[in-house]
């Protein structure tokens, strides 16, 4: 009797065979893997250019086996614009955290989106500045304590957390905008599909795709990985609802 062995789980070729520097329970690793799987699935690894941002995600080039340009804090969508306008046939994506994209880089993300640049943006929202040490981010939840909001985020003076996926969906240039989480297998599956869809939107239609990924930061939240993961469902998703906010063909044509 012959046994046929089928490989059902392997490291994506877009990902290097290295261990990450991320803290225990951090979900950057999961988000990285989903991006790599999507690049594999679309067959674009050999023509992929990643644009790294500032923060925990800066070491993109250490984990993805692709060419990478490192951008100043918040400027990844502008750098990616320059890259994509030169390398029109390449696959170009940015991978940015919440301080980077939703605070210092709001101008760059809004205008790259509004121009409908043919790039994909992965936005990792963990409600805090991770690498810098747990300071208040534009996505920090009301009353959430951080190292710069020691008594909790006061919406009266600090404003409310920004819902980027919804905000960008209002722009004509955006083809696809959604929010996903990676806190359980079902959500991870859905997140993978969403990232692939955003990437496909660029590769096949030349559209701007945006995926906000809700993730944990156990270290700066002062929680163990399990509690941190629970917080995603208990506190984050109620404020940052999962879903697709825009899904159209580029330049306003219905799919």
């Amino acid at each position: 009797m012959t046994t046929v062995l089928k490989n059902v789980f392997d490291r994506p070729v877009s990902l290097k065979d290295v261990s990450t520097h991320f803290c225990p329970g951090c979900q950057h690793g999961t988000a990285h893997r989903l991006c790599a799987e999507a690049m594999d699935s679309l067959g674009v690894q050999q023509r992929a250019i990643g644009v790294a941002s500032v923060g925990c995600s800066v070491f993109l080039y250490g984990y993805f086996d692709i060419d990478v340009v490192e951008a100043p804090h918040g400027r990844a969508p502008a750098v990616a614009t320059g890259v994509k306008r030169v390398r029109k046939d390449d696959f170009v994506f940015t991978y940015q955290g919440d301080g980077d994209l939703a605070a210092i880089g709001t101008s760059e993300i809004i205008h790259a989106a509004n121009r409908g640049e043919a790039i994909s943006v992965i936005f990792v929202n963990n409600t805090t500045y991770g690498m810098t040490g747990g300071q208040m981010a534009p996505t920090t939840l009301p009353q959430q304590q951080t190292s710069t909001s020691p008594t909790g985020r006061n919406v009266a003076s600090d404003g409310y957390p920004i819902r980027m996926a919804e905000l960008l969906s209002g722009l004509e240039g955006v083809s696809y905008s959604c929010r996903v989480a990676v806190n359980n297998p079902k959500n991870i599956m859905a997140a993978g599909k969403a990232i692939e869809k955003a990437f496909r939107c660029q590769v096949e239609q030349g559209g701007f795709g945006f995926v906000e990924v809700l993730t944990t930061c156990p270290t700066n939240w002062g929680m163990n990985p399990l509690k941190a993961n629970n917080r995603v469902a208990e506190e984050m998703i109620p404020y940052f609802p999962l879903g697709v906010f825009k899904d159209i063909a580029p330049m306003g044509q219905e799919v």
Partner: peptide, 14 residues
């Protein structure tokens, strides 16, 4: 101007 210098950075990187 900030965006334009970073677009230059991206294009030059290519």
């Amino acid at each position: 101007e900030i965006a334009s210098i970073n677009m230059l950075l991206g294009a030059s990187a290519c």
